[in-house]
Design a protein around this nucleic acid. Structure first.
Lengths: 332, 332
DNA sequence: TAAAAATACTCCATAGGTATTTTAT
DNA sequence: ATAAAATACCTATGGAGTATTTTTA
């Protein structure tokens, strides 16, 4: 599996093509911006290494041999491939003008992507995003392997040694059945103590949100029911059916709380929450671009829509949309 | 229509491919038989000129970026094209293993090709001959333009300044109707004087054989009939029909003299004749090969089959087949 | 004689080598 | 501490320049 260096150069092929086009060493040299002897020498060397006479020369004219014609044809093909490569690389100079594979966890994906994807399309028209939905552990593994370029997930999970940019703080809310007394008392946030002796429904193993919710609930004397939901949507349906209560990320509320029979209640400070962030491999060459991308997602992030949202500073005022000029991005 | 020199080298592409294959600069350098710094430098330069980071490096491993993967893919294509070119050129090293376009005049072609073509196929299995039939003037023009590589014709014609190798001396014979007294007296050759006052039929203008026959006949007091044949075959039919007499190249005799009603008679020395030769452009790079080709045709050339052929030295004895080793060919 | 390509030579850019340092785990 | 890539520095190959000669129509 060893490879010898190529015996000829692209430059030599260019010279050969130029001679075939102009039928003159002098004119070809002119077109290539080199002296005639330089071109002569390179062609002589090419003929030497190939062991084939490429052009018949006499003072009157230059005539490509059969081998020369063939070589010129193939040279054009090779040079074209090289040009394509150059053009493609040039296109890739702007990391936000190619294909970007981004992982997203299932507790973010259905709620954020419908908003973030169009925003990214608008902000970076040249960018094609490929979204990969999977659990944190899988995404981290795929990120490390280079199968994806970045991932949207919660920093609270085990994500290894990666760089990141925060997108949003996503507080958890308590979701109960409409007639559950736990969901009342909207004048104050729910407290940990309220959860005592509650029947709590949680996501299936492997979902990082399960771990985060569980970590919070562990401080109270809660009973986790045996049922494990595979999605927040399922979880909400169970709660609405009166099987118990659950925690929801605020992000999911606009979508999931519209269901009949469900009531959501924010927690009193310090409210449990997760930090949604875009993460990438340390030393990724497109770190700057990814940071810009995170900013764009942050700016598109939905404003909280919990019942007391009007009492809080509107998201738009807290974070005015900023110019996403890559030149102003902080260095990694 | 000016072209700038290519900003990168095939060597750099090879290095990139090697790194992508081995995922290690060290191993890639090893595979390319260069030192690791040399490979590093070349790749750094490639990245510099393309303006794109191709590989993420850290001491633990090397990971191609999206742009790097794309480049490697395209590099393989470009390198493949270059390899193809190299292979094709190598195949073309042997001039007798490609396509060779050879012109032939109409007074040679139908009589010599059925013998020469199979002989060449046997002698040079790799050679593909493309035969181009036309009159001398056209062939000479096409030869000069490079449209054909060589031509089989008579040296007596106007063929310009070309190199050649003799294939055979082709004496003319007198063709008469069977009962024409001119065709008798087979104990001695026909003399110029015999043609006095004969009605002679000749080929159409443009055929070099017409000019050669005419030049001979001009010494006698012959009448050229108004009829002009477009081929020797037609001419022979006219003679057999009793319209007059004509000259034929011996080469055509085995084919044409089989016709009923025709008699051929050799001329007494000095017999008129033409010299069949293979000609090519001066300075043709495949002169040596063409000379070999001419020798092969000469060796396959049919032995004279005139009535007194048995009295002469057999062709096989005169010219024993020789090894057609290109190394022994006389230089141009 | 005139044109075009080939030679002769000189120079410098650069690919490549060795030794060493930096870097990140 | 280690393994790998980057850096520093030197060398030598060879590509390109100018001036000149050779070639052939």
């Amino acid at each position: 599996m060893s490879s010898a260096p190529h015996p000829f150069s692209l430059r030599q092929l260019q010279y050969a093509v130029a001679v075939a086009d102009t039928l003159s060493f002098r004119k070809a040299a002119e077109r290539c911006h080199v002296s005639q002897p330089a071109l002569s020498a390179q062609l002589a060397q090419l003929e030497e290494t190939l062991g084939v006479r490429l052009f018949e020369r006499d003072p009157r004219r230059v005539l490509p041999t059969e081998a020369g014609k063939d070589l010129v044809l193939r040279s054009r093909a090779a040079l074209h491939a090289a040009d394509e490569l150059l053009a493609s690389a040039h296109r890739a100079r702007d990391p936000l003008s190619g294909r970007l594979r981004i992982g997203v966890i299932p507790t973010i994906s259905p709620y954020l992507l419908p908003i973030a994807a169009p925003a990214l399309r608008a902000a970076f028209p040249q960018l094609v995003t490929v979204w990969v939905e999977d659990k944190t552990e899988v995404l981290v593994e795929r990120l490390g392997a280079g199968a994806i370029d970045a991932a949207l997930l919660a920093l609270e999970a085990e994500i290894g040694d990666v760089d990141h940019e925060r997108v949003a703080e996503d507080p958890f809310v308590l979701a109960t059945r409409k007639d559950d007394p736990l969901g009342e008392a909207s004048d104050r946030g729910a407290a940990l103590a309220d959860l005592a002796d509650a029947d709590v429904l949680l996501l299936d193993d492997g979902h990082c949100f399960r771990d985060q919710a569980l970590a919070f609930c562990a401080k109270a004397n809660v009973r986790e029911l045996e049922f494990r939901a595979t999605s927040l949507s399922t979880l909400v349906q169970m709660v609405a059916a009166g099987s118990g209560v659950t925690l929801l990320p605020s992000l999911a509320v606009p979508t999931e709380a519209g269901r009949a029979g469900l009531r959501v209640r924010p927690f009193a400070a310090p409210a449990p929450s997760r930090t949604i962030a875009l993460v990438w491999r340390k030393r990724s060459p497109i770190a700057g671009a990814l940071r810009d991308l995170a900013h764009a997602i942050r700016d598109a992030y939905p404003r909280p829509s919990t019942p007391d949202a009007s009492a809080r500073t509107p998201a738009a005022a807290r974070r005015p949309p900023r110019a996403r000029d890559r030149a102003t991005a902080r260095p990694a």
